[in-house]
Simulated scan of single mutants.
Amino acid sequence: MGRVTVFTLGGTISARGGDANRMTGREVLAGLDAPEDVVLRDFRRVPSASLSFEDLAALAEEVRTAVADGSGAVVVQGTDTLEETAFLLDLLCTTEQPIAVTGAMRRPDLPGADGPANLAAALAVAADPACRDLGVLVVLADEIHAARHARKTHTTSIATFASPGTGPIGAVVEGEPRILFRPTTPTAPCPLTLDPAIRVALVTLSLGDRGELLEAVDERFQGLVVAAFGAGHAPAPLVEPLAALARRIPVVLASRTGSGSTLAHTYRGPGSEHDLLHHGLIPAGRLDPAKARLLLHALVSSGATGPHGYDRPRITAAFTHLNGSGLA
């Protein structure tokens, strides 16, 4: 079993009651039968809703350093943004070493606290050579999920993390990771970076939407993700405002439904997916809106836009890479 570096960021797993106090990383690990060669990095002590792109860029750099030295990695944080941290690390930390992200749904002072079991399972995954070349993994409730698919699906259940449409790729049984299937390609189509100064907007459409929020997507933003209806539909009056934005910045068309892929040509009327793609929007495929925003942010950070416009084919190819058409 390999060496593991643990990065603690705060969250419910470290909460002292319901206030802002957080345990240290050493206190989080205390009482756990952790291997002697675990290296602790007490990285942050904040609720995950307060994590910033600056925090995550710094975290990715430290994780890259650890895995380059031959260590597996465990990231411990709050569950509110856990799926986003895991996916972002999957884009930024291309390595064969196992990286597991975990947390807890119940505070340490509550009956049935799940933090110790989740942390023990994540340590087992990060230390196991059989978990190499799987990308970043989300490990909670003894289930192992690929970061690209994992989502928080319930506000309080300890089984909140699921992978809609795919299911977990494995499980931890009697402390031993068991991998059932492997992603066929890495999440990142090429090495990517994260520029915290980049701003990518996320706008969710709703019934009766007149596009007022689209008007706020001005020169401050270098990209936009639209969480549209169904398989990628918008009110017909919003087609032209979206097309105008797509002429200036990359606009990615995602679905707000929470599962399934956007379509390309099933519907062809005004506001349909075919209509929106014809007007320059880029299909998100299977990626949910939050993850589509992170991928677009990383692509823009990595040079997919410039003073003379943006590289639509490159951005489209990066999303197609993950759309499940025999590629991922």
Rank of each mutant, 00 (worst) to 15 (best):
A34T: 10
V252S: 06
P35E: 04
V172E: 10
D80P: 05
I99N: 02
D128M: 01
A30C: 04
D142C: 01
S302D: 11
L29I: 08
G309W: 05
P111T: 02
S71Y: 10
E54R: 13
A231G: 14
L134V: 02
D80N: 14
T193N: 03
A201R: 04
L322E: 08
R182Y: 08
S255Q: 13
L238Y: 05
P164F: 02
L194A: 11
S302F: 04
V38K: 07
D114G: 08
E219Q: 12
S206A: 14
A73E: 03
L180I: 11
T262Q: 02
D55E: 08
A130L: 07
L281M: 12
E219L: 03
V46Q: 09
G324A: 04
A15S: 15
H297L: 06
R107H: 15
D80H: 11
D142Q: 15
E27P: 00
I13A: 12
T257M: 12
T257W: 03
A130V: 08
D90S: 01
N118F: 03
S206E: 12
T102C: 04
P164Y: 05
A197V: 09
L51M: 13
L29R: 02
I158P: 15
A66P: 07
H278A: 15
A30F: 06
G269Y: 12
V226N: 15
D80G: 05
L51S: 06
P35R: 07
T166F: 10
T8K: 09
R44Q: 12
G258C: 03
L214C: 14
A49Y: 04
R199L: 12
G72W: 01
T320C: 11
R64V: 01
R148C: 07
S50G: 03
F161Y: 10
D142Y: 02
I315T: 10
V74S: 00
A104K: 08
V76P: 13
V173H: 14
A317K: 02
R26A: 15
L205G: 14
A228G: 13
L119G: 01
T155Y: 10
S71K: 05
V75F: 00
A120V: 09
V101W: 00
H297T: 10
A117C: 05
V239C: 14
T102W: 06
E215A: 15
P307D: 11
A68I: 00
A317D: 15
D311F: 01
D128S: 10
R106A: 11
R182N: 06
R106M: 14
V251Y: 08
R199F: 04
D80F: 04
Y310G: 06
A147E: 10
D19W: 09
P47Y: 04
R256N: 12
V101H: 00
E215D: 15
L214T: 10
M105L: 02
